[in-house]
Design a protein around this nucleic acid. Structure first.
Lengths: 284, 284
DNA sequence: AAATTTCATTCATAAATAATGAATAAATAA
DNA sequence: TTATTTATTCATTATTTATGAATGAAATTT
């Protein structure tokens, strides 16, 4: 049983005859006869009553017709939803925690208002993981920090993010790694986080060997910084949303270290209308 | 796009690879590759991301997989419901008005209790029309009066029905057509009704030429008989259910005219489990 | 580091399936 | 009666699909 068999059967049932169905299908009648007989053979059921060179749909035929209509309609939907140029289906988006609250909410809300028929599937993860997921097709789009050039990825720059080093109030001003001990304690997300790596690179560049404590929540991380547990690197924009700023000191970095470029990435060659629309939303 | 294509695709998506899918499907890997490529070509969408000799399902692939699952499940249902030996689907039953109230209700109710998953589609019509509908596949089963042998029909006798002639109270006793005028007025269903034809045949056999008034409702017909408008032929069993018996006279016929055989008919070669079950119900 | 295994793909060929057109037979319409 | 319509059969052609050997690239084992 194939879709084309069901299509032929549907047409015969609808037209009430082989000849008319054949005409509609641009086939020769003998071919239509053969396909009906093939179906009847396979299902072990007569789909039509043959009476005086006429066909009347049988009970079994009726039953099959119900299914055939549903199946063919679904197959049609599948084709249209895959080939159409209107956003549809599910859009899976990932982003760093760092931009979750500050940068993602608005475009997400606007996109959903404009395309309510698209189901959104959003999650946050560190940059490195997001890139892997995009490459493996587990995510359609991701907002990540400073992605490297990759022939497999499409990349568009969305905004610049100023990063600052934060410490407790009691800490001296930090303008270079020299202002820290040789083995400073660093609070950061896991090793696939771009900001954490930027911070450790900055320290290594200044001959420091950091000890890293992995904390996968900015809320917790800033509490720990406030308590003097160590330093961290976070977007300046993020600090507005957190209530610890009184007990936290913010240190501006030299410009070559301060600016992180946040980009939208996707797997090249796998674009679809939903992705295009969201991308447009972000860049507008 | 064919069902077998979707089946192959589904298996590849599920197994996460060409080789394993091919094994499950008892096909050779190159064939599986070819079918996936055919689908991708037809839909103009890459269904998998090829990365280091591995396949990862793409966004489009996910979308198609959703549809494929639905479509294949429906196709499976179709096959099972057509080939299974348990009553299912829709059962279309017709019967004469004459037996509607008296003989059909109980088995119908019992059948529905025993097989609630079968949707019943019942209607009443005169015997002649019922036979036509069964022959044309518009009805699965029908209860009709005295069907003629027909190689296309399956026929089982269900019960005998005693027919009586009814007239108004004031009419003289009727034991043969001679007790009536030469042109008696007859009240009957339409010309495809077996009982009406039996009455007119009985009259013609006795040299009467009846004038027929067509009334397609026993209720109305008996009211008219009570009012002295003419005579009619009805099952004796039917009279118990009508409130006019006081003003109606009942005339017993000679045995060769009195007994009508009610039979269940169906189109030969188009039996199915629902029909078998209902037939069993009736004969039990 | 080398050898082996795993995996998807390509390609030429074989096998299976489907489509065609002419012929037939039965029923209906002119 | 004679056309016409209809479904079907059958032989032939065309198309599609399946196979197996070969390739190349990556992962795993030795």
């Amino acid at each position: 049983m194939e879709l084309s068999d069901l299509q032929v059967f549907q047409q015969v049932a609808q037209c009430g005859g082989i000849t008319r169905a054949a005409e509609k299908l641009n086939r020769v009648p003998s071919n239509v006869t053969a396909r009906i007989q093939k179906l009847e053979e396979e299902l072990q059921q007569l789909l039509f009553i043959r009476e005086k060179n006429r066909l009347y749909i049988s009970s079994a035929g009726h039953q099959l017709l119900d299914y055939a209509n549903q199946i063919l309609s679904l197959a049609d939907q599948a084709k249209h939803s895959l080939q159409g140029d209107k956003p549809n289906g599910t859009l899976r988006i990932g982003y760093m925690d760092a931009v979750a609250a500050t940068r993602v909410v608005r475009p997400l809300k606007q996109f959903h208002e404009q395309f309510p028929e698209v189901s959104l599937n959003v999650r946050s993860a560190p940059t490195g993981l997001l890139i892997e997921h995009v490459l493996e097709g587990k995510l359609d789009l991701a907002l990540v920090a400073d992605p490297e050039q990759d022939t497999r990825l499409g990349i568009t720059h969305i905004f610049d993010e100023e990063l600052v080093v934060v410490s407790s109030r009691r800490h001296q001003t930090i303008s270079s790694p020299n202002d820290l001990s040789a083995n400073p304690t660093v609070l950061g997300f896991n090793y696939k986080c771009a900001y954490r790596n930027r911070l450790t690179n900055w320290l290594k560049h200044g001959q420091c060997v950091p000890k890293v404590i992995e904390i996968n929540s900015y809320h917790t991380m800033l509490s720990c910084v406030a308590a003097g547990m160590g330093i961290a690197m976070v977007p300046r924009a993020l600090l507005n949303d957190y209530p610890f700023t009184d007990s936290i000191q913010c240190h501006t970095l030299a410009s070559e270290w301060a600016v992180s470029r946040t980009a939208l990435i996707w797997r090249k060659g796998f674009e679809n209308p939903s992705m295009d629309a969201f991308s447009k939303q972000l860049t507008a």
